[in-house]
Amino acid sequence: MYTHNGEDVFVIDGHIHLWDAREENIIHEGGEQFIQCFHDYHTGFTPEEEQWDMDTYRNYGAERMVEDLFRDGYVDMGIFQPTYLTDFYDEGFNTTGQNAELAEEYPERFVLNGSFDPRDGDEGIAHLERLKDDYDIQGVKLYTAEWRGDSKGWRLDSDEAFRFLDKCVELGIENIHAHKGPTIRPLNRDAFDVGDVDDAASSFPELNFIVEHIGFPRVDDFCHIATQETNVYGGLAVAAPFAQSRPRKFAEMMGELLFWVGEDNILFGSDYAIWEPDWLIPAVMDAELTQDERAEYGVELSPEVKRKFMGENAARLYDIDIEAKKEQFKDDAISREFDLGDTYEEASAD
């Protein structure tokens, strides 16, 4: 748990990965380009002394992940967002199956999400049903720019995608996380265009659409959609590290998001292991708007607002009872392993 000015902040990291980019898992040059590109984003925004070498970055493993998130990183719970990329990686890059191993070891600490690809047709529907059966998933992470054979991507507003969204409604998979953000080599830039979220979100009001990476480089398009659709959310991964290296730009971006998207519809995510919560969370929590920015946007980046996007908003989407979790974490496996029980004792005494 993070403590900010003496107050507890329950952190649900809305965007984490456990990937395998070892050379023996790569079966297409796109796989190597992809992890190299991820590493560029890592070094681009990570303080020099916190940067990882490429070997560690390819495959950091479950043990390190648990330490980085819970022991060192103030995170209370994390949401796995899978990225299959099975055309690039033999066993997949970061699949629900791979994530499940850790998620099932500490089920109280992790939310495990699935994924679908409408190009998989009937087989894809069966896969989604299986994920629901096996793991009772409440959300999916979608990668509209993923390559599949000759196809370089798909759209969320297509008939094929709507068939899968119908299936999500039927199965009670309510949270649809779509990567709509910076280009990742070798994927096509336009396949991450945020425009297709609009029609999907208005056609499926019972689902929540979380636009990961707030649509960069089309934040304005994303904001327009989020203003109109109450079931559209913004995931802060990629914007969050601005807080460390470019704090004024981060504050300005938060001003825009709070104005257009609203404080109830923003979710924090570290994008671990691209960035690590131990330095990222303090930077985000320390961010402040200037008087001019507060006047300009008519919003506050107050501790209450930060608590919302740091955990409360995600808790609402995933039916997590934060008070019950604090009680449980006084003595769960992670708290015992890292001696964290006391932090939750003090919290509930408040």
Binding site: D40, T43, G44, V219, D220, F242, K249, E252, E256
Partner: peptide, 21 residues
């Protein structure tokens, strides 16, 4: 104003990558 913030936000990403590389 949002259009400005979007361009500057993207510029922040590019600048960070450029500085690092």
């Amino acid at each position: 104003r949002l259009a400005v913030s979007n361009i500057e936000g993207q510029a922040t990403i590019c600048a960070s990558l450029h500085e690092s590389r």
